[in-house]
Simulated assay, not measured.
Amino acid sequence: MPTPLDDQLLENAIEQTLPMLTQLLNTPSPTGYTREAIRFCRESFTALDLPLSVFETRKGALMMPLKGKSAQIHRAVTAHVDTLGAMVKDVKPSGRLKFAMLGGSPWTAVEYEGVTVRTAKDERIRGTIVPVNGSTHVNKDAATMPRNENTLEIRLDARTRSGAETVALGIAPGDFIFFDPRVELGEAGFIRSRHLDDKLCVAAIYAALIALKDGGLIGQIAYDTLLNISNYEEVGHGGRADWPDEMDELLVVDMAAMGDGQWSDEFSVTLCIRDSGGPYSFEMNENLRRLAAEAGIPLKTDLYPNYSSDGTAYWGAGGAARVALIGMGVDSSHGYERSHRDGLKHTTHLIAQYLLGE
Rank of each mutant, 00 (worst) to 15 (best):
T3M: 11
T3L: 13
D7N: 14
L10F: 04
E11V: 01
N12D: 06
I14E: 02
T17W: 02
L21I: 08
P28Q: 07
Y33D: 15
R35F: 10
R35V: 10
R35S: 15
E36S: 08
R42Q: 15
E43N: 13
S44V: 03
T46N: 11
L50W: 03
E56Q: 03
E56G: 01
G60H: 01
A61S: 15
M64I: 07
K69M: 13
A71W: 02
V77Q: 06
A79E: 00
V81E: 06
D82G: 07
D90H: 13
K92G: 00
P93C: 13
P93M: 15
S94Q: 03
F99C: 07
L102D: 00
T108F: 12
T116D: 13
V117N: 01
R118Y: 14
T119E: 08
T119G: 04
G127P: 13
I129H: 07
P131H: 05
V132W: 02
G134P: 01
D141F: 12
D141C: 00
A143V: 13
T151R: 07
I154D: 11
T160I: 15
R161G: 15
R161W: 12
S162Q: 10
S162I: 10
G163A: 12
I171Q: 07
G174I: 08
G174M: 08
D175Q: 09
D180M: 12
P181E: 02
L185E: 07
A203I: 02
L209W: 01
A211Q: 05
G215L: 06
G219V: 02
Y223F: 15
S230Q: 08
Y232G: 00
E233S: 04
E233Y: 06
E234Q: 10
H237P: 00
G238T: 12
G239K: 09
A241H: 11
W243C: 03
D245P: 10
E249K: 06
L251Q: 01
V252R: 04
V252Q: 07
V252H: 05
F267Y: 15
S268G: 00
L271I: 11
L271Y: 09
C272K: 14
I273S: 10
D275T: 03
P279A: 05
S281I: 05
E294G: 12
G296K: 08
L303W: 11
G316I: 00
A317G: 11
G318K: 06
G319C: 09
A321K: 05
R322P: 01
A324D: 00
L325H: 01
G329F: 13
S333V: 10
S333D: 04
G335R: 14
Y336S: 07
R338D: 05
S339Y: 05
D342R: 15
L355G: 02
L356I: 05
G357T: 05
